[in-house]
Design a protein around this nucleic acid. Structure first.
Lengths: 226, 226
DNA sequence: TCCTAAGCGGATCAATTTATCCACTTAGTG
DNA sequence: CACTAAGTGGATAAATTGATCCGCTTAGGA
């Protein structure tokens, strides 16, 4: 609930808060939303009480992580916006975000389980929306993408790349780039099939299908909370 | 474990087995891997004992559902193979599988959580692999796709479409088609940008980002069991 | 240095989940 | 129809999880 406490935390408390969040990330990356606050406390080497005092429940912890993540999206969008060439700008945002998405193994769970109805989050979402919209509009106007390209395509792009990245991370780490390239081509944001980012080997495919998993968390883990 | 009992089940038992599986699908589609066998029993209107006798645990139930699903993949691949035109064949498999993937809301969870090490499943996987390989090789030979197109791209395609479909199902049901088209274009399996399958509206985007979710199931729900 | 508000940790309890067991019912063969 | 192997359901034991509470410790201002 409380996004940021008014009185700053005592130094040790703040340290613990960070420790808890970093530990939670690690655990979430490994086990998905099935993690437990008690479990996180143990892994972080602090008492359960310490965790529960700072984060009433797992939801609150995930929301906090979500806010951090969202900030990163904003930063990337702003950075990309610096480019003078609209095509470059859009391409950079897509690729930077994709790269980050492919590296942060906790991101999917965090995005999927964050509560999204709080005021500050709504504000950040609007801001990101504006940034992305700007990038997209500029690129379309400049004729650098197919003319029906829209913001939705940016989000879809990231979801798609994320799906591939999550399933190939341990097997063929760079594999997502191939699909990023294919999508950019399909969107008309890139012309030629680019340097061969080759497909995966037989064995790599086998290990991707179906992908590993953990129980707990509507991983289709979807639906439910909404 | 037991994939198919040797002595056929008594009629009423078989009926209950089906009832349980159909109920489980519904519940999994709605709540992801967070479902409980007791919960399924209640929803199916049978006793817990009945469920546990047939399926020792949730894993067994999911494995059974997985086998059914895999059979469907095989059927689609075989059907697509009938086409004389290799381009048509590959395209049909991709689109049929994608459509099905977008409709079966339980599929992602089932694929993500199935145990994959059993003999019969390995056999089915090999068979599907051969089918898909055949489709891909024929299309490449015919020059209907970019020459570095590989089987891995087929699986990646489905993961990517699945990601979009799962997140837009309730909001913009046909949205996945747009991205299927973009991917086909990017893979060189299709030439022109096709009839405008337009992007989503502002409001639709907002509701997709981030998407709804349920706890439990490493949805990131990933990693863990492997 | 002293004092106290703030923080800490983990024993402990409530709630939920998982899974078993067994007295009762029923399909379906002879 | 009668008999029995097969199946049924749900009360309940065991295990796991979620969350609180409170006596002890400590940061950091006066």
């Amino acid at each position: 609930m409380t996004p940021e406490p008014q009185r700053p935390l005592r130094a040790d408390a703040e340290r613990n808060r960070q420790l808890i969040m970093r530990t939670a990330e690690r655990l979430i990356a490994r086990r998905g939303p099935a993690v437990t606050l008690n479990e996180i406390a143990r892994a972080a080497g602090v008492g359960v009480g310490t965790v529960y005092r700072r984060f009433p429940d797992l939801q609150a912890l995930i929301d906090a992580l979500f806010t951090e993540r969202f900030t990163t999206f904003l930063r990337l969008a702003a950075a990309a916006g610096q480019h003078v060439d609209p095509a470059q700008a859009l391409r950079q945002y897509l690729l930077d975000a994709a790269q980050w998405r492919s590296e942060d193994r906790a991101l999917d769970t965090i995005l999927a389980h964050a509560g999204t109805d709080t005021k500050p989050i709504a504000r950040m979402r609007d801001e990101l929306g504006r940034h992305v919209d700007g990038l997209v509009r500029a690129a379309v106007t400049a004729g650098a993408v197919r003319e029906d390209f829209a913001s939705a395509d940016v989000y879809a792009f990231l979801h798609m790349i994320g799906a591939v990245a999550d399933r190939t991370h341990d097997i063929a780490p760079g594999a997502w780039r191939r699909y990023a390239e294919v999508l950019l081509l399909g969107f008309g944001l890139q012309r030629s099939p680019a340097a061969h980012t080759s497909a995966m080997t037989e064995e790599q495919i086998r290990r991707t299908w179906p992908e590993p998993a953990t129980r707990r968390s509507a991983d289709p883990g979807r639906a439910g909370r909404a």
